[in-house]
Amino acid sequence: MTTFTWLAAAGVIIIVALAAYAYMLWKKVLAREAEQRAVAADRNQRLEGDIIILANSLLEGQLPLIEGSIRIKVLLDNYYGPRRADLDVTVFERIYDATVHIPTHQGWKDLGKAERQLHEQQMETLERDHREEIFSAAKNISRGLGK
């Protein structure tokens, strides 16, 4: 055998080895993508269940309208699953936007009585003005988010 034949054979062996390695890597990429899709689907399914529970709790009066609206909006922001075409949740966004400046937890406790009453009045006004729209959106959500 000539040197050229040895080099050609070595080249073919290297190409086959690299192709096999590339194939293995590609299979790993496809498997990882499938795993990520499954994790995302599970996450969306859990979020959908949580959103429906919140909507039902809101409808049954177990959750204050403002708090429920904010919680639903935040979960919807993290939900990337299918949504029905007739699912209008803009009221939750409006409630969130109107209350985002109100402190929570320790910030609420640190507020003076006058400031707290001012925020409570604002929340009562929002509840009164958007009650029917919130209930309508919650009823729509309670039927499910997906198709």
Rank of each mutant, 00 (worst) to 15 (best):
E33Y: 00
F92G: 03
N140M: 07
E93P: 13
I102M: 05
E120Y: 07
L25M: 12
V29Q: 13
L59V: 06
K73H: 13
N140V: 02
L18R: 12
G49M: 06
R37C: 02
L7Y: 07
I141S: 08
D77N: 15
T5K: 05
E115Q: 13
E133A: 13
A22V: 09
A138G: 09
F92S: 01
E48L: 10
Y80M: 11
M123H: 07
I141K: 01
R84H: 08
K113E: 14
G144C: 03
I102N: 05
A55V: 02
K73I: 01
L118D: 11
I141L: 11
I53N: 11
L76E: 02
L145Y: 09
Y21V: 15
H119R: 01
E93N: 11
H105Y: 12
L126V: 04
A31N: 10
I72N: 00
L87H: 02
Y80F: 11
H101C: 10
T5E: 14
I70S: 10
K109V: 04
V91I: 14
L18A: 10
D97R: 15
E93A: 05
G61P: 04
Q122A: 08
A41P: 14
T104L: 03
S136A: 06
R46N: 15
N140Y: 03
R46D: 15
Q62E: 07
